[in-house]
């Protein structure tokens, strides 16, 4: 018999998430090189990974704008076409929009995702970005690092590192999609296909 679903445990409240984003925006600002002759809008950009990463990137973009007065460009990335498990799923995953309204070549990119686990999504995202051009650098930012890495991908900026069990799942919820901000730890239903993150 599968164990009954545990009640979800809240890892971050809306306020915690806000403070984490405040701190991360600060860390991004520190990376802007004052000696770079180019304007920050030419040298930097956010790339939000579908779906939650896009909304988190928008918030970071807004915070950077408040603090430094610059609006860094923001792109949307869907890595479905680059995933290594496309043909292992029960049905073909839905492809979402990829919209990168700037040239990635020569730019410092901040790649934003909600949760990193196996690292496979990050691997796919790097391949996708490299096909679009040759970025000057990619900084991988994630709100939650829940461990269980299967490929050597390490986030550069981590909101919180949370050791989890393999059958658990971390859900970062954002108001724009889920109606509420916060991070929850839930045990995934026993039969569900492993969601590679």
């Amino acid at each position: 018999m599968p164990p009954p679903n545990r009640a979800p445990a809240q890892l971050m409240t809306a306020r915690d998430l806000e403070r984490t984003l405040d701190r991360m925006a600060q860390q991004i600002l520190e990376r802007i090189d004052p000696d770079d002759a180019r304007a920050p809008t030419e040298a930097f950009a956010f790339v939000g990974m579908q779906t939650r990463g896009v909304h988190l990137a928008r918030r970071l973009q807004a915070r950077v704008r408040e603090q430094a007065g610059v609006t860094l460009p923001l792109g949307l990335l869907d890595v479905t076409m680059y995933r290594d498990d496309v043909r292992l799923q029960l049905e073909q995953p839905r492809i979402q929009a990829t919209r990168i309204p700037f040239d990635v070549t020569g730019r410092h990119l901040v790649l934003v995702d909600d949760v990193v686990c196996t690292g496979r999504t990050g691997r796919a995202a790097l391949d996708a970005l490299m096909d679009l051009g040759r970025p000057a650098s990619v900084c991988f930012l994630t709100i939650i690092d829940r461990r269980h890495r299967e490929v050597p991908i390490t986030p550069d900026l981590v909101g919180r590192s949370v050791p989890t069990l393999p059958d658990e799942e971390v859900r970062v919820e954002v108001e724009e999609v889920d109606g509420e901000d916060g991070v929850w730890l839930v045990s995934s239903p026993p039969s569900s296909a492993p969601e590679a993150r």
């Binding site: 479905t80 076409m81 680059y82 496309v86 043909r87 391949d127 096909d131 679009l132 051009g133």
Partner: peptide, 11 residues
């Protein structure tokens, strides 16, 4: 895109 190929259906 500059590279008009994706690895989606490799194999």
């Amino acid at each position: 895109r500059p590279i008009r190929q994706v690895p989606t259906l490799q194999g």
